[in-house]
């Protein structure tokens, strides 16, 4: 179905923050996302799980247009992301437009990707100052508040190299929050961490889950159980099933889900 040529689309329900329709994505001949559909409502916490190579991270990266899609539509806050419709054909937006959209979406990466040449506080205030044009003093005050919130007020002037992986990831979360995004994407945020540091990052995320719209790609079933409103199981580029955590873990409907759960839960 082709949407009208207006860049903004009135969604039936204004509480829907993310809407993906028939999203297809290829890496060369490899069909990584097959007609993916997903709706995420305001303040919902959706955890996407699935075997590695299932396309879950790729899908997440399409939501802020770090990956291009080959067909379908993704809307964030009612605006199509990365593209506009011109006579039924998708045309990629200008870099400036895409940047503006990305500023409203926070992202946390598996490998933290903090800027190594900047201190913790400098990492946090960089985008608010450059993108939002917030004065340094105000950005710093806000940044320090965020650092305190992730429990790292004392690491303010440390460089990423000087703090642990778990601390780096918490700074990365603060950095994303500093843009006051309406949506947070987490791409396997604890997969690169030593086991003893996973807890501190998940604690921060659980805290956030009370007040934010979050889409989390993760293997942490404990977190999914505790913080998710909905679990989405993805395999081979398709959503196999989605349900509340209670329902999902107690009564997985599909055979593939049962197999995956038996492998991951031992």
């Amino acid at each position: 179905m082709v949407t009208p040529t207006t860049p903004s689309v009135k969604l039936a329900d204004s509480n829907i923050i993310v809407k993906a329709e028939n999203v297809n994505k290829y890496f060369g001949a490899l069909h990584v996302l097959k007609d993916m559909d997903l709706e995420v409502r305001r303040n919902e916490v959706v955890v996407i799980i699935g075997p590695s190579g299932s396309g879950k991270s790729t899908f997440l990266r399409c939501i802020n247009h770090l990956e291009k899609i080959n067909s379908g539509h993704i809307y964030v806050n009612g605006h199509m992301i990365g593209y506009h419709d011109r006579n039924g054909k998708l045309v990629e937006d200008s870099e400036r437009n895409i940047s503006r959209q990305r500023a409203e979406i926070g992202m946390v990466f598996q490998r933290f990707n903090l800027f190594p040449h900047l201190t913790a506080i400098e990492n946090i205030i960089e985008a608010p100052m450059r993108v939002r044009k917030i004065p340094e003093e105000q950005a710093r005050a806000e940044g320090e508040r965020l650092l305190a919130r992730v429990g790292l007020a004392d690491k303010r002037d440390k460089y990423p190299n000087q703090i642990s992986g778990g601390q780096q990831q918490r700074v990365a979360i603060a950095r994303a929050l500093a843009m006051k995004p309406g949506l947070m994407l987490f791409d396997e945020p604890t997969s690169a961490l030593d086991p003893e540091m996973i807890g501190e990052v998940l604690d921060v995320m659980k805290e956030l889950a009370h007040e934010m719209t979050m889409i989390v790609v993760s293997h942490e079933m404990g977190f999914a159980r505790a913080a998710a409103n909905r679990i989405v199981f993805v395999d081979e580029g398709q959503i196999i099933e989605q349900a509340s955590p209670e329902e999902f873990f107690a009564n997985p409907r599909s055979e593939r889900t049962r197999l995956f759960l038996s492998q991951i839960l031992h």
């Binding site: 770090l66 990305r102 990707n113």
Partner: peptide
């Protein structure tokens, strides 16, 4: 990853180059 982190924060290509 550095470039990705910067553009995910909404920085423009020029800002990414100049600042990151």
């Amino acid at each position: 990853g550095q470039r990705e982190a910067a553009i995910a924060l909404g920085m423009t290509p020029w800002q990414v180059m100049r600042r990151v």
